[in-house]
Amino acid sequence: MRKSIPSLRGPAIVLAVLAFVFLMAPEFYTNHSVLLTMMTFMGLAQGLNLLYGFTGYLPFGYVGFFGTGAYATSLLVTFTGLPILVCVLGGGLAAALIALILGPLLRLSGAYFSIANLAASQIIYFIVANEDLKSITGGPYGIKIEQVYAPHASYLTMLALLLVVTALAAYFRLSRFGLGLKAMNQDPVSAAFAGVNVVRERLIVWLVSAAMAGMIGGTYAWDLSVFYPSAVFTLQISVFAIVFALFGGVGTVIGPLLGAAVLYMLYDGIGVSAPQYFELIYGALIVGLVLFLPNGLMSLLTRRRINVL
């Protein structure tokens, strides 16, 4: 039989390395915003990996949950004055609620799901950014929550979320629940006859993935503390999360983290100073990825039968 308590050493090491790197990084590199944004994208790539890597649903509209979390958190700060961490949690719940409403999308398959999810995210964007809601959301003029600005606390919160979402990926990879996911990913009908509650497992993953994006969005908003709706709803966020996750390798724990770290550094290194070269290199990277490494960086190891987390 499968070992009932899977080895926790691998996940423990990954989490310890992540924590160490991002706790130490500010000592050596003082650009707070770069480090925080990097963690944001690592978290988003991992959150997207929870859904895409473990159920095969690719959410083009993943940014919708991020933006929902950013706005829900900000509105909670503005209108309730609850402690900021409660507001961030509220951002996660709001995103999960949207995911619950969008639950029927899971009946669609492949590209239909992706496109419907994309459309849903844009609808949320248009609602939030609507001039008529100016008195609540700030409409197109954005929102301010400077009263809670605390860069050190938001940094640590983002790190905590990155650890949580990574622990979830490890859980999906190693647990009984994950075994069910693996089975239904390969053949949902057979999985049902093996006794797996396919619809429920899928919905749980969808809600968890959305909630993580929501909390990450809330923390990102907290860190910015002043932002336009486009800053948290731009499709570039979805695209980055997808490309980063795919580049590293979905369905693994380390892949999306690695992919996001490498590509975000590249983006930060050349994307900002020489965007025209960046687009070129990025485009070439994506094409190369699809052609030569469709399963991401991690497949360089798995192809050699090296077991990776």
Partner: peptide, 19 residues
């Protein structure tokens, strides 16, 4: 219909685990 990327033993184990 089987779980193609699992071993034969794992295929049987999934059912034993979830049924």
């Amino acid at each position: 219909k089987c779980f193609r990327e699992m071993s034969v033993r794992e295929n049987v184990e999934v059912a034993a685990t979830f049924a």
